[in-house]
């Protein structure tokens, strides 16, 4: 199961489009006002609730509806990736993807890449 925190401006429309196209049954989408509003504890709790990976989906850099939310989220995702490795999970569990609202293919590719990485490391996705 991959949990995707999608910002309401870009991430959510792209994710819904990709979900409509099918093939993403293991994806859970959570809408957030901005990718930058996703807190560390929320991501870590998702893992406790059974997520195999967490994808933070936000606007393109420098095109964020909240100016620098997407940038904050990108930095936070790097910190979280290190944190979950310190906790004992394999790498590639947290990632950030920047996209525009019509780029459902980019969303799908990010999910598939994360799924592949997790499987490579011996986990389930």
């Amino acid at each position: 199961m991959i949990v995707c925190y999608c910002c309401s401006r870009s991430g959510m429309p792209a994710a819904l489009l990709a979900l409509e196209e099918g093939g993403l049954d293991d994806v859970i989408v959570r809408e957030v006002p901005c990718a930058g509003s996703v807190e560390q504890w929320e991501v870590l709790r998702s893992f406790r609730q059974g997520a195999e990976g967490v994808l933070i989906v936000g606007c393109l850099l420098e095109n964020c509806a909240h100016h620098y939310g997407s940038e904050v989220a990108a930095r936070r995702s790097l910190i979280l990736e290190r944190t979950v490795q310190d906790i004992g999970l394999t790498k590639g569990r947290v990632a950030m993807v920047h996209l525009a609202e019509q780029q459902s293919a980019r969303f799908r590719r990010a999910v598939e890449e994360m799924r592949a990485t997790i499987r490579e490391q011996g986990g389930q996705a």
């Binding site: 807190e39 560390q40 504890w41 870590l44 709790r45 893992f47 406790r48 944190t83 979950v84 310190d86 906790i87 004992g88 999970l89």
Partner: peptide
């Protein structure tokens, strides 16, 4: 926020 994050991290580590 930071305390909640650490708390979640510790709980996750404990479960794993």
């Amino acid at each position: 926020k930071e305390s909640r994050a650490l708390s979640e991290a510790l709980a996750l580590h404990s479960e794993l």
